[in-house]
Design a protein around this nucleic acid. Structure first.
Length: 350
DNA sequence: TACTCGTGGAC
DNA sequence: TGTCCAAGAGT
Protein backbone atom coordinates (compact mmCIF):
# COMPACT_ATOMS: atom_id res chain seq x y z
CA UNK A 1 0.00 0.00 0.00
CA UNK A 2 2.38 2.64 1.32
CA UNK A 3 5.01 1.32 -1.03
CA UNK A 4 2.93 2.27 -4.06
CA UNK A 5 2.04 5.65 -2.63
CA UNK A 6 5.66 6.53 -2.04
CA UNK A 7 6.77 5.21 -5.43
CA UNK A 8 4.20 7.44 -7.13
CA UNK A 9 5.19 10.49 -5.07
CA UNK A 10 8.88 9.94 -5.82
CA UNK A 11 8.08 9.61 -9.51
CA UNK A 12 5.93 12.74 -9.42
CA UNK A 13 8.71 14.74 -7.75
CA UNK A 14 10.75 14.25 -10.90
CA UNK A 15 8.16 13.94 -13.66
CA UNK A 16 5.31 16.29 -12.69
CA UNK A 17 4.13 18.12 -15.78
CA UNK A 18 4.03 21.90 -15.50
CA UNK A 19 0.58 23.43 -15.88
CA UNK A 20 -0.43 27.07 -15.35
CA UNK A 21 -2.77 26.21 -12.47
CA UNK A 22 -0.44 23.68 -10.87
CA UNK A 23 2.01 24.23 -8.01
CA UNK A 24 4.97 21.97 -8.71
CA UNK A 25 5.98 19.55 -5.94
CA UNK A 26 9.19 21.40 -4.96
CA UNK A 27 7.27 24.66 -4.54
CA UNK A 28 4.53 22.92 -2.59
CA UNK A 29 7.14 21.46 -0.25
CA UNK A 30 8.42 25.02 0.23
CA UNK A 31 4.99 26.00 1.48
CA UNK A 32 3.44 27.43 -1.68
CA UNK A 33 -0.27 26.71 -2.04
CA UNK A 34 -2.32 26.70 -5.24
CA UNK A 35 -4.95 29.35 -5.91
CA UNK A 36 -8.25 27.54 -5.19
CA UNK A 37 -9.97 29.59 -7.89
CA UNK A 38 -7.44 28.51 -10.51
CA UNK A 39 -7.67 24.89 -9.38
CA UNK A 40 -11.47 24.89 -9.43
CA UNK A 41 -11.50 26.45 -12.90
CA UNK A 42 -9.01 23.90 -14.19
CA UNK A 43 -10.83 20.92 -12.73
CA UNK A 44 -14.17 21.95 -14.22
CA UNK A 45 -12.57 22.59 -17.59
CA UNK A 46 -10.74 19.26 -17.45
CA UNK A 47 -13.95 17.26 -17.04
CA UNK A 48 -13.91 14.95 -20.09
CA UNK A 49 -11.49 17.38 -21.74
CA UNK A 50 -7.79 17.13 -22.53
CA UNK A 51 -5.11 19.27 -20.90
CA UNK A 52 -4.09 20.49 -24.35
CA UNK A 53 -7.58 21.84 -25.04
CA UNK A 54 -7.93 23.43 -21.60
CA UNK A 55 -4.73 25.50 -21.48
CA UNK A 56 -5.86 28.37 -23.70
CA UNK A 57 -9.31 28.55 -22.11
CA UNK A 58 -7.88 28.61 -18.60
CA UNK A 59 -5.57 31.42 -19.62
CA UNK A 60 -8.45 33.34 -21.20
CA UNK A 61 -10.70 32.96 -18.15
CA UNK A 62 -8.06 33.94 -15.58
CA UNK A 63 -7.19 36.97 -17.71
CA UNK A 64 -10.78 38.11 -18.18
CA UNK A 65 -11.84 37.18 -14.62
CA UNK A 66 -8.79 36.91 -12.31
CA UNK A 67 -10.72 35.82 -9.23
CA UNK A 68 -14.03 34.33 -8.19
CA UNK A 69 -15.55 37.72 -7.37
CA UNK A 70 -14.80 38.98 -10.87
CA UNK A 71 -16.34 35.90 -12.43
CA UNK A 72 -19.39 36.13 -10.20
CA UNK A 73 -20.15 39.63 -11.48
CA UNK A 74 -19.57 38.79 -15.15
CA UNK A 75 -22.40 38.83 -17.69
CA UNK A 76 -23.74 35.38 -18.50
CA UNK A 77 -23.45 35.95 -22.24
CA UNK A 78 -19.78 36.94 -21.93
CA UNK A 79 -18.96 33.78 -20.00
CA UNK A 80 -20.83 31.56 -22.45
CA UNK A 81 -19.06 33.26 -25.36
CA UNK A 82 -15.68 32.73 -23.70
CA UNK A 83 -16.51 29.04 -23.17
CA UNK A 84 -17.57 28.56 -26.81
CA UNK A 85 -15.68 25.70 -28.46
CA UNK A 86 -14.80 23.89 -25.22
CA UNK A 87 -18.02 21.87 -25.13
CA UNK A 88 -20.31 20.59 -22.38
CA UNK A 89 -21.81 24.01 -21.93
CA UNK A 90 -23.67 23.12 -18.74
CA UNK A 91 -20.25 23.40 -17.15
CA UNK A 92 -20.12 27.12 -17.94
CA UNK A 93 -23.63 27.74 -16.63
CA UNK A 94 -22.83 25.84 -13.41
CA UNK A 95 -19.49 27.63 -13.15
CA UNK A 96 -21.31 30.95 -12.90
CA UNK A 97 -23.83 29.58 -10.41
CA UNK A 98 -21.00 28.27 -8.24
CA UNK A 99 -19.00 31.50 -8.45
CA UNK A 100 -22.03 33.44 -7.28
CA UNK A 101 -22.69 30.96 -4.50
CA UNK A 102 -19.09 31.23 -3.30
CA UNK A 103 -19.32 35.03 -3.26
CA UNK A 104 -22.80 35.37 -1.78
CA UNK A 105 -23.02 32.35 0.50
CA UNK A 106 -19.39 31.67 1.48
CA UNK A 107 -18.05 35.21 1.80
CA UNK A 108 -15.90 34.84 -1.30
CA UNK A 109 -13.92 31.93 0.12
CA UNK A 110 -13.99 28.49 -1.50
CA UNK A 111 -15.26 25.65 0.71
CA UNK A 112 -12.41 23.39 1.80
CA UNK A 113 -13.96 20.01 2.45
CA UNK A 114 -15.29 17.41 0.03
CA UNK A 115 -18.73 17.54 1.67
CA UNK A 116 -19.01 21.32 1.27
CA UNK A 117 -17.57 21.43 -2.26
CA UNK A 118 -19.88 18.76 -3.65
CA UNK A 119 -22.88 20.92 -2.78
CA UNK A 120 -21.82 23.45 -5.44
CA UNK A 121 -23.34 23.03 -8.93
CA UNK A 122 -21.03 21.38 -11.43
CA UNK A 123 -18.89 19.85 -8.70
CA UNK A 124 -19.45 16.10 -8.42
CA UNK A 125 -17.57 13.32 -6.61
CA UNK A 126 -14.41 13.57 -8.68
CA UNK A 127 -14.13 17.37 -8.72
CA UNK A 128 -14.93 17.74 -5.01
CA UNK A 129 -12.16 15.27 -4.19
CA UNK A 130 -9.73 16.90 -6.61
CA UNK A 131 -10.24 20.45 -5.33
CA UNK A 132 -10.11 19.49 -1.67
CA UNK A 133 -6.93 17.45 -2.21
CA UNK A 134 -5.08 19.68 -4.67
CA UNK A 135 -6.06 23.11 -3.36
CA UNK A 136 -6.33 22.32 0.36
CA UNK A 137 -4.37 19.09 0.94
CA UNK A 138 -7.39 17.29 2.33
CA UNK A 139 -6.86 13.50 2.16
CA UNK A 140 -9.61 12.95 -0.44
CA UNK A 141 -9.44 10.13 -2.96
CA UNK A 142 -9.78 11.12 -6.61
CA UNK A 143 -11.33 8.61 -8.97
CA UNK A 144 -11.33 9.73 -12.57
CA UNK A 145 -10.81 7.81 -15.79
CA UNK A 146 -7.06 7.72 -15.20
CA UNK A 147 -7.33 6.31 -11.69
CA UNK A 148 -9.91 3.77 -12.80
CA UNK A 149 -7.51 2.50 -15.44
CA UNK A 150 -4.54 2.44 -13.06
CA UNK A 151 -6.51 0.53 -10.41
CA UNK A 152 -8.05 -1.93 -12.88
CA UNK A 153 -4.53 -2.82 -14.04
CA UNK A 154 -2.82 -2.69 -10.67
CA UNK A 155 -5.28 -5.27 -9.32
CA UNK A 156 -5.90 -7.00 -12.66
CA UNK A 157 -9.62 -6.50 -12.04
CA UNK A 158 -11.79 -7.31 -15.06
CA UNK A 159 -15.05 -5.99 -13.63
CA UNK A 160 -16.59 -3.81 -16.35
CA UNK A 161 -17.13 -0.07 -15.89
CA UNK A 162 -19.16 1.77 -14.84
CA UNK A 163 -20.30 -0.94 -12.38
CA UNK A 164 -16.71 -1.32 -11.18
CA UNK A 165 -16.47 2.25 -9.91
CA UNK A 166 -17.17 1.41 -6.28
CA UNK A 167 -14.61 -1.40 -6.29
CA UNK A 168 -11.98 0.79 -7.93
CA UNK A 169 -12.71 3.48 -5.37
CA UNK A 170 -11.93 0.97 -2.62
CA UNK A 171 -8.61 0.18 -4.30
CA UNK A 172 -7.79 3.85 -4.78
CA UNK A 173 -8.53 4.68 -1.13
CA UNK A 174 -5.86 2.23 0.02
CA UNK A 175 -3.13 4.30 -1.59
CA UNK A 176 -4.30 7.83 -0.87
CA UNK A 177 -1.58 9.81 0.87
CA UNK A 178 -2.20 11.51 4.21
CA UNK A 179 1.11 13.37 4.08
CA UNK A 180 0.88 14.80 0.55
CA UNK A 181 -2.72 14.40 -0.63
CA UNK A 182 -2.52 17.10 -3.30
CA UNK A 183 0.66 15.81 -4.89
CA UNK A 184 -0.57 12.23 -4.68
CA UNK A 185 -3.86 13.00 -6.46
CA UNK A 186 -1.98 14.66 -9.28
CA UNK A 187 0.67 11.94 -9.34
CA UNK A 188 -1.74 9.07 -9.91
CA UNK A 189 -3.61 11.01 -12.58
CA UNK A 190 -0.37 12.05 -14.30
CA UNK A 191 0.69 8.42 -14.31
CA UNK A 192 -2.54 7.45 -16.04
CA UNK A 193 -2.20 10.29 -18.53
CA UNK A 194 1.42 9.70 -19.50
CA UNK A 195 2.45 6.10 -18.67
CA UNK A 196 -0.56 3.94 -17.86
CA UNK A 197 -2.32 5.11 -21.03
CA UNK A 198 -5.32 3.35 -22.62
CA UNK A 199 -3.78 1.95 -25.80
CA UNK A 200 0.01 1.96 -25.49
CA UNK A 201 1.00 1.90 -21.82
CA UNK A 202 4.71 2.37 -21.27
CA UNK A 203 5.12 -0.31 -18.61
CA UNK A 204 8.90 -0.33 -19.08
CA UNK A 205 9.25 2.99 -17.27
CA UNK A 206 6.33 2.63 -14.84
CA UNK A 207 7.32 3.32 -11.21
CA UNK A 208 4.87 0.70 -9.90
CA UNK A 209 5.45 -1.99 -12.52
CA UNK A 210 6.72 -4.44 -9.90
CA UNK A 211 3.40 -4.12 -8.01
CA UNK A 212 1.16 -4.39 -11.07
CA UNK A 213 -0.92 -7.55 -11.33
CA UNK A 214 -1.93 -6.94 -14.95
CA UNK A 215 1.70 -6.41 -16.00
CA UNK A 216 2.44 -9.76 -14.40
CA UNK A 217 -0.51 -11.35 -16.20
CA UNK A 218 0.05 -9.48 -19.46
CA UNK A 219 -3.53 -8.17 -19.52
CA UNK A 220 -2.85 -4.40 -19.57
CA UNK A 221 -4.41 -3.85 -22.99
CA UNK A 222 -7.64 -5.62 -21.94
CA UNK A 223 -8.19 -3.25 -19.02
CA UNK A 224 -10.25 -1.52 -17.92
CA UNK A 225 -13.20 -3.54 -19.19
CA UNK A 226 -16.15 -1.44 -20.29
CA UNK A 227 -19.76 -2.27 -21.03
CA UNK A 228 -20.26 -1.83 -24.78
CA UNK A 229 -21.89 1.40 -25.87
CA UNK A 230 -24.83 1.79 -28.20
CA UNK A 231 -24.23 2.90 -31.81
CA UNK A 232 -24.87 6.54 -32.65
CA UNK A 233 -27.92 7.35 -34.79
CA UNK A 234 -27.72 10.00 -37.49
CA UNK A 235 -30.06 12.98 -37.24
CA UNK A 236 -30.73 15.81 -39.64
CA UNK A 237 -31.49 19.49 -39.12
CA UNK A 238 -31.67 22.77 -40.99
CA UNK A 239 -29.83 25.91 -39.90
CA UNK A 240 -31.22 29.25 -41.07
CA UNK A 241 -28.51 31.83 -41.62
CA UNK A 242 -29.86 35.25 -42.52
CA UNK A 243 -28.53 38.78 -42.80
CA UNK A 244 -30.46 42.01 -42.85
CA UNK A 245 -29.73 44.63 -45.51
CA UNK A 246 -27.49 46.52 -43.07
CA UNK A 247 -25.37 43.40 -42.61
CA UNK A 248 -26.73 42.37 -39.20
CA UNK A 249 -26.91 38.60 -38.54
CA UNK A 250 -29.99 36.82 -37.23
CA UNK A 251 -29.00 34.72 -34.22
CA UNK A 252 -30.78 33.02 -31.38
CA UNK A 253 -29.83 32.31 -27.78
CA UNK A 254 -30.69 28.67 -27.16
CA UNK A 255 -32.75 27.62 -24.14
CA UNK A 256 -30.87 26.93 -20.91
CA UNK A 257 -31.66 23.24 -20.91
CA UNK A 258 -30.69 20.73 -23.52
CA UNK A 259 -28.04 20.55 -26.19
CA UNK A 260 -25.87 23.68 -26.52
CA UNK A 261 -27.99 25.19 -23.73
CA UNK A 262 -27.51 28.91 -23.23
CA UNK A 263 -25.31 29.24 -26.30
CA UNK A 264 -25.67 31.62 -29.21
CA UNK A 265 -26.46 29.96 -32.52
CA UNK A 266 -28.38 30.09 -35.78
CA UNK A 267 -32.08 29.35 -35.61
CA UNK A 268 -32.50 25.69 -36.50
CA UNK A 269 -35.14 23.03 -36.81
CA UNK A 270 -35.27 20.26 -34.26
CA UNK A 271 -32.62 17.66 -34.97
CA UNK A 272 -34.51 14.52 -35.87
CA UNK A 273 -34.87 11.77 -38.43
CA UNK A 274 -36.92 14.05 -40.66
CA UNK A 275 -36.77 17.72 -39.62
CA UNK A 276 -39.85 19.94 -39.88
CA UNK A 277 -39.32 23.35 -41.46
CA UNK A 278 -38.96 26.06 -38.81
CA UNK A 279 -37.75 29.10 -40.75
CA UNK A 280 -37.58 32.24 -38.58
CA UNK A 281 -38.90 34.41 -41.41
CA UNK A 282 -41.25 33.89 -44.33
CA UNK A 283 -38.75 34.85 -46.98
CA UNK A 284 -37.37 32.82 -49.85
CA UNK A 285 -34.56 30.65 -48.41
CA UNK A 286 -31.75 29.25 -50.55
CA UNK A 287 -30.28 25.91 -49.53
CA UNK A 288 -26.54 25.39 -49.93
CA UNK A 289 -25.28 22.34 -51.75
CA UNK A 290 -22.94 21.46 -48.89
CA UNK A 291 -24.00 20.20 -45.45
CA UNK A 292 -22.23 20.67 -42.14
CA UNK A 293 -21.39 17.35 -40.55
CA UNK A 294 -20.88 17.13 -36.82
CA UNK A 295 -20.75 14.34 -34.26
CA UNK A 296 -22.02 14.85 -30.73
CA UNK A 297 -21.59 12.42 -27.86
CA UNK A 298 -24.61 10.33 -28.74
CA UNK A 299 -25.56 11.10 -32.37
CA UNK A 300 -24.23 12.21 -35.75
CA UNK A 301 -25.73 15.36 -37.20
CA UNK A 302 -26.14 16.32 -40.83
CA UNK A 303 -26.94 20.02 -40.78
CA UNK A 304 -28.45 21.47 -43.95
CA UNK A 305 -27.89 25.21 -44.34
CA UNK A 306 -30.36 27.70 -45.80
CA UNK A 307 -29.50 31.37 -46.31
CA UNK A 308 -31.42 34.57 -47.00
CA UNK A 309 -31.15 38.34 -47.12
CA UNK A 310 -33.86 40.11 -45.14
CA UNK A 311 -35.29 43.59 -45.67
CA UNK A 312 -34.42 46.46 -43.31
CA UNK A 313 -37.78 46.26 -41.56
CA UNK A 314 -37.81 42.47 -41.17
CA UNK A 315 -39.32 41.17 -37.95
CA UNK A 316 -38.44 37.48 -37.63
CA UNK A 317 -40.61 35.22 -35.50
CA UNK A 318 -37.63 34.32 -33.31
CA UNK A 319 -34.00 35.23 -32.67
CA UNK A 320 -32.46 38.69 -32.67
CA UNK A 321 -30.19 40.68 -34.97
CA UNK A 322 -26.56 41.24 -34.07
CA UNK A 323 -24.74 44.05 -35.87
CA UNK A 324 -22.01 42.99 -38.28
CA UNK A 325 -19.37 44.87 -36.24
CA UNK A 326 -20.43 43.09 -33.04
CA UNK A 327 -20.82 39.58 -34.42
CA UNK A 328 -17.95 37.24 -33.57
CA UNK A 329 -18.07 33.73 -34.99
CA UNK A 330 -15.62 32.48 -32.37
CA UNK A 331 -18.33 32.91 -29.73
CA UNK A 332 -20.39 30.18 -31.45
CA UNK A 333 -20.31 26.50 -30.55
CA UNK A 334 -18.40 24.47 -33.12
CA UNK A 335 -21.36 23.05 -35.02
CA UNK A 336 -22.72 26.58 -35.52
CA UNK A 337 -19.30 27.75 -36.64
CA UNK A 338 -19.24 25.01 -39.27
CA UNK A 339 -22.56 26.18 -40.66
CA UNK A 340 -21.32 29.77 -40.64
CA UNK A 341 -18.20 28.83 -42.56
CA UNK A 342 -20.32 27.23 -45.28
CA UNK A 343 -22.68 30.21 -45.53
CA UNK A 344 -20.21 33.08 -45.16
CA UNK A 345 -19.11 33.03 -48.79
CA UNK A 346 -22.64 33.50 -50.11
CA UNK A 347 -23.59 36.15 -47.57
CA UNK A 348 -20.80 38.63 -48.07
CA UNK A 349 -21.81 42.16 -47.22
CA UNK A 350 -21.03 44.72 -49.90
C1' DT B 1 -28.90 2.49 -13.91
C1' DA B 2 -28.84 4.61 -18.18
C1' DC B 3 -29.11 8.50 -20.77
C1' DT B 4 -27.79 13.33 -22.01
C1' DC B 5 -24.33 16.47 -22.80
C1' DG B 6 -19.16 18.74 -27.08
C1' DT B 7 -15.06 18.75 -28.99
C1' DG B 8 -10.63 17.69 -31.19
C1' DG B 9 -6.82 14.56 -31.47
C1' DA B 10 -4.93 9.88 -31.94
C1' DC B 11 -4.93 5.77 -34.37
C1' DT C 1 -13.31 7.50 -42.40
C1' DG C 2 -14.99 5.73 -38.06
C1' DT C 3 -14.14 4.83 -33.40
C1' DC C 4 -12.27 5.72 -29.12
C1' DC C 5 -11.18 8.61 -25.80
C1' DA C 6 -10.12 12.88 -22.16
C1' DA C 7 -8.78 15.18 -14.75
C1' DG C 8 -17.59 13.74 -15.15
C1' DA C 9 -22.00 15.87 -13.70
C1' DG C 10 -26.94 16.11 -13.77
C1' DT C 11 -31.12 13.88 -14.17
Amino acid sequence: MREITNALLDWYDIHARAMPWRVMPADRKAGKRPDPYAVWLSEVMLQQTTVAAVRAYHEKFTTLWPNVAALASADDADVMAAWAGLGYYARARNLLKSARAVVHEHGGMFPITYDALIKLPGIGPYTAAAISAIAFDEPSTVLDGNVERVMARLYDDHTPLPAAKTVFMDYARRHTSNDRPGDYAQAVMDLGATICTPKTPVCGICPIQSQCDSFCAGTQLDLPKKTPKKPKPTRTGIAYIARREDGAWLLETRPEKGLLGGMLGWPTTEWADDPVDAAPHSTNWTELNDHARHTFTHFHLILRVQTAWLPADASPNRGHFIAAETFDATSLPTVMKKAYTLAAATLRHV
